[in-house]
Amino acid sequence: MSVDTNPELRPLLAALEEVILGKERQIRLAVCCLLARGHLLIEDIPGVGKTTLSQALAQLLGLSHQRVQFTSDLLPADILGAAIYDEQERAFRFHPGPIFHQVVLADEINRASPKTQSALLEAMEEGRVSIEGETHPLPEPFFVIATQNPFHQHGTFPLPESQLDRFLMRISLGYPDPRAERRLLAGEGGGDVLRGLPPCASGGKLSHWQEEVTALHVSPPLLDYVQALLRHSREAGEYQSGLSPRAGLGLLRAARAWAFLAGRDSVWPDDVRAVLEAVAAHRLGGVALESGARRLLEAVAVP
């Protein structure tokens, strides 16, 4: 019943699936995150298609796209931009950094210093950049896809929990299944295919969708369910940290977007369940993140 797809979004999803093979669920989650005006953290080893995904999203939606490779010597100004003195105008002029694009891929975010990380995340959160007393709004829509290497790699600064909370979702793409990998090896999918694809929508269209998502109906019983999930995460004692109110809001937003993707005009518990792992796992802490989210789902009754 919930595998339906909003006909408006069908071409976009289809095109994305042409590019990233065998990852329907992750694609859906990424689009869902975008529709919910959230930012996406992809935690994965290199080479599974993170960059391609962000590129594909930007291109198919007709958005401007910039990739920033984070390194340990990357400075905040390298991302945000800087005010530089203009000799001719005898004034400081703001040179926007790579963040002033609609889709920003922050590759290997945990390689940069905490200072740089927090500069990016602050801008993400506030939707603007303030430099030398001047405020520069970020473009609309604005979508950050950050990628992160698994923690055990050397020379990394893992994002602290407070920063993780800024990402609506955290997903991992993982290895493709054998069938998808075979297609990949046979030359299907990937960046080459993407280059031949026309945009499926525009930034204006995306904004419109985002508006619709916000307006989606949420019934009292569904709020009961979300609240019960939040309460359980805090009271069960199984998790390092309970879900914050922001996490609750994020969960609801993501669920709305998921329902919109499914072409419905109201949110069902199924939507909450579909996005819970992506939204909540990185906030619950602990080692076995995914199974923690799953445990939460099994423990709370659906009203």
Binding site: W268, P269, D270, R273, E298, A299, V302
Partner: peptide, 9 residues
């Protein structure tokens, strides 16, 4: 209890 109506259906 934790099963949604749609999943149960």
């Amino acid at each position: 209890g934790a099963e949604t109506p749609a999943a149960f259906a």
